[in-house]
């Protein structure tokens, strides 16, 4: 009944084909099949945000998505986000502001923060908090994370303004 299914998708720009059980969640596929362990599994019911990845450009919970549902999609994980250099300023700001302690939430937090920053402008602190409200951090108390995101938004807006 639960016959394995062959899927092909793109992860961080590289095509991957594999045969998976229908019940395999995307987060387990990323970690165990694709060996990309930067994406973390926390609560397994969509509340903590540790497993957040990009699917066709939008943030999603990889614990609330079957690997078979990702057929034909483009997934981006923290590994891709870091390697591409596109979010280097955000990663650097997290580092400098001590927005990372144990690191468990960081990959998901960065994907969510990057999604907000991609909307452009300089969001106020309440908007930043609202956007990362689905990403739990039990270490930092969020203050330093909001500091980091706010700084990147300001810097990027300044650069965009200077270039216009």
């Amino acid at each position: 009944m639960s016959a394995p299914v062959q899927i092909t998708l793109s992860i961080n720009g590289e095509p991957i084909t594999a045969t998976v059980a229908p019940r395999m969640m995307l987060v387990d596929f990323l970690r165990e099949v694709a060996a990309l362990t930067g994406t973390h599994l926390g609560c397994a019911h969509g509340v903590c945000g540790a497993c957040t990845v990009r699917l066709d450009g939008a943030s999603v919970r990889s614990c609330l998505m079957l690997a078979v549902q990702a057929e034909g999609t483009e997934i981006e994980t923290i590994e891709g986000l870091a390697d591409s250099g596109a979010e280097a300023d955000l990663l650097d700001a997290f580092h400098r502001h001590n927005a990372v302690q144990c690191g468990y939430c960081s990959s998901g937090m960065l994907v969510s923060a990057a999604e907000l920053l991609a909307q452009g402008g300089v969001p106020d602190r309440a908007t930043i908090r609202d956007h990362i409200s689905g990403n739990y951090c039990r270490c930092t108390g969020y203050q330093s994370i909001v500091d980091a995101v706010e700084e990147v938004a300001r810097t990027r807006a300044g650069k965009a303004g200077a270039g216009a």
Binding site: L55, A58, S59, V60, R61, L64, E115, G134, N135
Partner: peptide, 9 residues
């Protein structure tokens, strides 16, 4: 309704 990543799906 929930959070941005949930609203995306």
């Amino acid at each position: 309704v929930a959070h941005p990543a949930i609203r995306n799906r």
